[in-house]
Amino acid sequence: MSALRERLDILFSTNTITPGAMKLCEATIERFVQPDNEKKYKKLVTHLGMAVTRIERSEELNAPPEEIMQEIRRSPHFAQAAENVKWIESQMDGKLPDEERQYLIMHFVNASEI
């Protein structure tokens, strides 16, 4: 997981993500990422770190376009992606806002289809 870990270290060292975001990203990598599929999760892990940081900093949130989410909901990987996001939420103090939940589901679906 060296490339993902290096990416997180850079985001953290530049104060782009918070300690809480870093911790959750590390747990997510441990749970879902294998050495042979690390590249597939680059966008997901980056987005997760940024999402948690936006939430912790009370920054504005935006949802993905509905047209994209309609396509994502048709994916055979959608149900598993939603379960993966539920696991992430179980590691947090509260639920993710719907906007961020949608993006993470999208990234999990994309990682499964690559």
Rank of each mutant, 00 (worst) to 15 (best):
E38L: 06
V33Y: 05
S2W: 04
P19C: 10
M50V: 10
M69N: 08
L104S: 10
E83R: 06
K40A: 15
P19V: 09
V52C: 10
E66V: 07
P64V: 05
I55C: 12
R74K: 15
L61I: 00
Q70E: 15
A21V: 03
D9C: 01
S75Q: 08
L61V: 00
L8W: 02
D93Y: 05
E100Y: 01
Y41K: 08
R31E: 14
L104G: 10
N110D: 13
A21T: 03
K43Q: 13
N15S: 12
N15Q: 12
I105S: 09
P76K: 07
L61K: 02
S90P: 00
T14C: 01
F108P: 12
E60C: 01
I72R: 01
R31Y: 03
R101E: 09
P35Y: 04
I114D: 15
R5L: 14
I29P: 14
P76Q: 08
D9K: 07
S112T: 01
T16E: 13
M69W: 01
E38M: 07
T16C: 07
L8M: 10
Q34M: 09
I114N: 13
P64F: 01
A82P: 02
F32P: 04
A82V: 08
L4I: 03
V52S: 09
L61D: 07
Y103W: 15
E100L: 05
K23L: 14
L24H: 07
C25D: 12
E59F: 02
A51T: 02
K39N: 12
N110T: 14
E99G: 02
K86E: 14
H47M: 10
L11T: 01
A27S: 15
E67I: 07
A111E: 09
Y103C: 04
A79G: 03
E99H: 04
Q34Y: 03
D98E: 15
R57T: 06
E100F: 00
N37W: 00
G49S: 09
F108H: 11
L4R: 05
A3G: 03
L104A: 11
V109Y: 03
L44A: 12
E89P: 04
Y103G: 08
L44G: 10
S2F: 09
M92S: 10
K39L: 12
D9T: 06
R31F: 01
E67M: 05
T53A: 09
A63V: 00
M22V: 05
F32K: 06
I29V: 15
A3F: 04
R74E: 15
R31P: 03
P19D: 13
S75L: 05
N15W: 02
H77K: 11
N37T: 11
A63P: 11
V33I: 08
G94L: 00
K39S: 14
M106V: 01
A27Q: 15
A27H: 11
D98G: 01
A82L: 09
R57C: 03
N84I: 00
